[in-house]
Design a protein around this nucleic acid. Structure first.
Lengths: 147, 147
DNA sequence: GCATTTAGTATAGTTCCTAAACTTAATGGT
DNA sequence: ACCATTAAGTTTAGGAACTATACTAAATGC
């Protein structure tokens, strides 16, 4: 028999352990598609650009929650690895439009596939109702963390 | 009406967004207790040492999932900030026993309190059953990420 | 037209980590 | 008792991933 407080602590501890595991994962580079090994920041940037592409540098900074300067550095690395292309904006000559190359789109697809498989694996062990509740909890967490 | 595949994608996207938010959080220093601002790595190290203390450097490396060299550097910073103390091991003169100082224990308590409050806030918006399911999901995620 | 805002870059510095080469101490045969 | 091996911790060089600050150049708004 658990008390309210026991539950509380073990739940909080598990969440802490999850964060520790994510910190560990978010340090190791991985290969996606035909591109070489990509650091977590690099693949997240590719993810934030997306298949459609046509993203501005400052928009990317907003999506990733980092400064414009950091984006400049990341895009420079990704351009050197030939995963993204810079092109001038048609109306605003200050702006730069970022898009994925074919290799970049491959990497993005491979990364999405990893996520999808991971999520499927989780879903396979849960009932419809449990999945629904879990996703609602994740949404609530997102709202809490937004501020 | 959702299809299975729609659900899947939105769930996976929400999880991705959560990770993005955690990445952002895990960059900003915060103050805990009477200690000055602590970086995420520093407070996680304090957390890993714990109230009881008496942890070896290599044990700490294992708990945090980082190398011994990284721990040496972290502990040096925390010692300078007077949050931890090094003391010789009674039986093994190679080993060093790490413990929290009073300030370190205060910081740890304040950090735990933040976690507890955050978790309470989440719990207040969920039913008993939802909490139970959510915690089970977190545990499953931990198992998946373990490998 | 001129001040202000906005897009992006450059650069220096910090944090946080790894890898590799070390020192020193313990341990396990032989 | 001796020596190889293992284990605990440190050191150093370097890379990744940021921030902050100061900048250039183009757009916008009175």
């Amino acid at each position: 028999m658990y008390t309210q407080s026991d539950n509380n602590h073990s739940g909080s501890r598990n969440l802490g352990r999850l964060i520790m595991q994510l910190r560990r994962l978010e340090r190791q580079p991985h290969s996606f598609g035909t591109a070489g090994p990509l650091t977590p920041s690099e693949i997240h940037t590719v993810e934030a650009i997306g298949f459609e592409g046509g993203v501005l540098m400052s928009e990317l900074a907003g999506r990733l929650g980092i400064t414009k300067g950091a984006v400049t550095q990341l895009i420079a690395r990704l351009e050197a690895k030939e995963l993204v292309t810079r092109s001038p904006h048609p109306n605003d000559s200050r702006a730069i439009v970022i898009s994925l190359t074919e290799t970049g789109r491959e990497a993005n697809a491979a990364h999405e596939e990893v996520h999808r498989r991971f999520y499927d694996q989780l879903r396979s062990q849960l009932s419809e109702q449990e999945i629904e509740i879990f996703e609602r909890c994740i949404e609530k967490l997102n709202v809490f963390l937004q501020q």
